[in-house]
Amino acid sequence: MATIDAPNPDIQATGAQTHPLYWKNRGFAHHFRNADEQFDACKLGMWLFLSTEILLFAGIFCAYAIFRMLYPEAWAAGSHHLDWRFGGLNTVILLLSSWTVASGVRAAQLGNNAALIRNLVITLICAGLFVFIKLYFEYIPKLSAGKAPGTFFSYPYAHDPHEPLWWSIYYIGTGIHALHVLIGAGLLIWVLVRAIRYEAYGPTEYTMVENSALYWHLVDLIWIFLFPLLYLIH
C-alpha cells in the first residue's frame, strides 16, 4: 500500500488538492504516536547521520594535520599553487547557498511554496557554480600542469619533495567534498521536484526540506574548514 486509500473528506470538501503527496494530506507512519514524534525522530536520525559524515571527513582532516605537522614546507609550497580568490569565491557561493536553503526551510514552515521553490533554485545554481569553478578553474588547469596526486604527479618544478602528498590530500579532501555537494544537490532537486509538482511541503510537513537543508549546511561546514586549511596557509 503505497498511498493512502481515501483522501481526507475534509480536504475534498474544501476543494483543496487531492494528491496524496500534497502537504495537507500527509500523515505519519503507524509506529509513531503522532506526527511530531515522527518529525523529531527523522531529525534526530539526520543529526546522527551528519555526525557520521563529520567523522568521515575527520579521517581526511587527520591525515592533513599529520602531514602538515611532518612536512610544513610542502604544505606551504603546495598551498601557493592554489589561488585564494577561487577558494574565497567558492566560500561566498556556499555561504550564500546556505542562506537561501535556510530561507527555503523558513518558506516551507510558513507555507510559502513559491518562496521555497525560488530559494531552492538559487541554491542549486550556487551548487552548480561551485562545482564548475572547482572543475574548470582549479582541477583541470592543475591536473594538466601535472600537479596531481601521488604517482600521477608530473610537475617538474616542485619546491618540496613532499608536494605529491599535498596534492593527494588536496584532491581527496576537495573531491570527497565535491561529491557531497553533488549528493546534496541531488537531494535538493528531489525536494524541488516534489515542491513544484505536488506542493508537497507546508507547515505540517517539511521534514524532507529540513533534512536536506541540514545536509547542505554540513557541506558548507566542511568547506568552512577546508578553505583556510588549503588556501590560506604559508
Binding site: T3, N25, H30, A35
Partner: peptide, 27 residues
C-alpha cells in the same frame, strides 16, 4: 506496512502546526 498512516486534522493552527494536541512544543 509502515504506510498505514494516520492523517492529522489539516486545519492549520500556527501555535500547533502538527495539530497533535498533547505535548506539543511548536517548531
Amino acid at each position: 506496512s509502515i504506510d498505514d498512516v494516520h492523517i492529522p486534522n489539516p486545519d492549520f493552527d500556527p501555535t500547533d502546526p502538527h495539530a497533535t494536541g498533547q505535548g506539543h512544543h511548536g517548531h
